[in-house]
Design a protein around this nucleic acid. Structure first.
Ligand SMILES: [Mn+2]
Ligand SMILES: [Mn+2]
Ligand SMILES: [Mn+2]
Ligand SMILES: [Mn+2]
Lengths: 146, 146
DNA sequence: TGGATAGTGTAGCTTTGGCTACAAATTGAC
DNA sequence: GTCAATTTGTAGCCAAAGCTACACTATCCA
């Protein structure tokens, strides 16, 4: 079923974006507040809180009422994978000549449809085209600051 | 709002897939029956019929009850754009080393998040890498059999 | 000319992901 | 310590996209 996999990728896209944002807020701000998550996503806080409830239900997040959101181990693992994949997609788009701002925008949607084999191909491509100036950190490796 | 554009692309993805499939069925079978559309998508016919109703509501499709589905001018125009973009995405993925079957699967989801500038970059990239063996038909040009 | 089969449509249900409006808790400034 | 502002949570609404179950129409063949 050619479209079924795209449909299931679409279904997990929202969860992936949430854990990515939560991990980022935890790293940079020390805490992830519902309001900040909502603002980053461009939705109302009510929507964010409801979706965060689903993340908790699905074992990706936890936290007590009025005390911010945290990630479970599963949530952290997902966030790491999502973050690395996001960067790889951005890098590939830019390597193909897509302007940086556009690459960032499009990657936000494309990333959720990049399967394992495709991601591997992307990384091989980037490694191969590293004739380009700056020293390249392999996108597949866990970033040092993790 | 970085995620808002991805969200709106997601919203139109289903309509794009439907018109693409309908156009394909009209071309190859001469008619587009709800059951065939449903089978291609991997959903039940009830779901397909309901979605086709939305396409009609939105001016992309038409047709009388029990008489198959047709595309409006807007629907045909959308189908043409979607088909060309689909092929470009598949070509780029394969050029990057993604196996053909995987490229086809992933493209089905990725295509809906490829913006105009990114598509243009893809086409420039393909035109540039046409050092590769077989004569390349520019993906941006309307295909001859249209 | 019937039926059987295949296709289409409708009804009713669920989940997701949005929203507004309002209520409750926390935090920060006096 | 109190009170205003911020943040969080809840309730109730909606549309989309899926499903099953059932009813209706068309088609095809004996
Ligand atoms: Mn994303
Ligand atoms: Mn992302
Ligand atoms: Mn598609
Ligand atoms: Mn497609």
């Amino acid at each position: 079923m050619r479209h079924a996999s795209a449909r299931s990728a679409r279904a997990s896209a929202l969860a992936e974006d949430y854990v990515e944002i939560i991990a980022d807020l935890l790293n940079t701000e020390g805490e992830a507040r519902a309001t900040d998550i909502a603002r980053r996503l461009g939705v109302t806080h009510a929507t964010a809180i409801k979706t965060i409830g689903r993340l908790k239900r699905d074992g990706l997040a936890n936290g007590k009422p009025y005390r911010g959101v945290f990630l479970t181990e599963a949530g952290h693992a997902l966030a790491r994978r999502v973050r690395a994949r996001h960067q790889t997609v951005v890098d590939v788009l830019q390597a193909l000549g897509v302007p940086p701002e556009v690459a960032e925008l499009d990657a936000e949607g494309i990333e959720h449809h990049v399967s394992g084999p495709t991601l591997a191909a992307f990384e091989r491509f980037l490694a191969g085209s590293s004739a380009t100036g700056a020293a390249r950190i392999p996108a597949a490796m866990p970033p040092a600051e993790e």
